[in-house]
Design a binder for these strands. Structure first.
Lengths: 117, 117
DNA sequence: TCTATAGTTCGGTAATTAACGAACAATTGA
DNA sequence: TCAATTGTTCGTTAATTACCGAACTATAGA
């Protein structure tokens, strides 16, 4: 059983969080977890190879945005909303709300549907 | 007289804004403008060469975060707060508040003071 | 035990980025 | 007109990143 590294709340850095959220694929993952709750990587609808997805998921975890829980062969991701709200009040909500209203999600989804799964 | 490109409000992208804000130097610049109002590049207290600063300033402008006004030999930068608030409500405030309370600014400033100007 | 599923790691490529100094351009002010 | 100030552009280097497929690990379920 592999141990996954998660930064402590106090060690979560603003610039790292912003960087992790600045990638369209990672934003999409975060938005999907926000809407659907804890879920496994296989459910993320993103137009990339699974090895690439694995890297993005790691980036989110190491930035302190997500928590990864091992469940069988799956990795269940959830948002560390409480930690983020404590450390950067309002930031996550503002990002999620803005993303929901943007056309960036639509564009990514189109790519995903073109590629198929 | 060179023309500077500024994206229109509707063309400001969330991921580009987050990316531009994810660099410690650029965050410091944004925080300084927020506190001191419109100001020239020479007043930014960041530990980098002026050619590098010029690039960072361009990144902020092209992401839609700052507006650059030409005044003599200077470029006066201001925050496009209204555009950003309209497009991504609460985002800029959350970032600025979080940055102000973080230790990231302190660390950058220490580097700046070490290097001298 | 065997197979399928879920995800990670590795090795490699291509693209992007941050950084610098030197040279340049534009403007101000002496 | 000349020098100083302010910032940009260029060429280069080093580091990081995104991406992929192939091989691998671990677990679940037949």
């Amino acid at each position: 059983m592999k141990l996954l590294h998660h930064p402590e709340r106090k060690d979560i850095l603003l610039s790292s969080v912003l960087y992790a959220l600045s990638d369209p694929v990672r934003l999409q993952i975060v938005a999907q977890i926000h809407r659907g709750g804890e879920q496994a990587c296989k459910s993320f609808e993103v137009p990339i190879a699974k090895s690439t997805l694995s890297q993005h998921v790691r980036t989110l975890r190491e930035a302190g945005i997500t928590h990864t829980r091992i469940y069988g062969t799956q990795r269940l991701l959830s948002l560390r909303s409480e930690d983020l709200n404590e450390r950067f009040p309002g930031l996550l909500d503002a990002v999620l709300r803005s993303y929901g209203e943007s056309r960036e999600e639509i564009e990514l989804r189109q790519e995903y549907e073109k590629q198929g799964s």
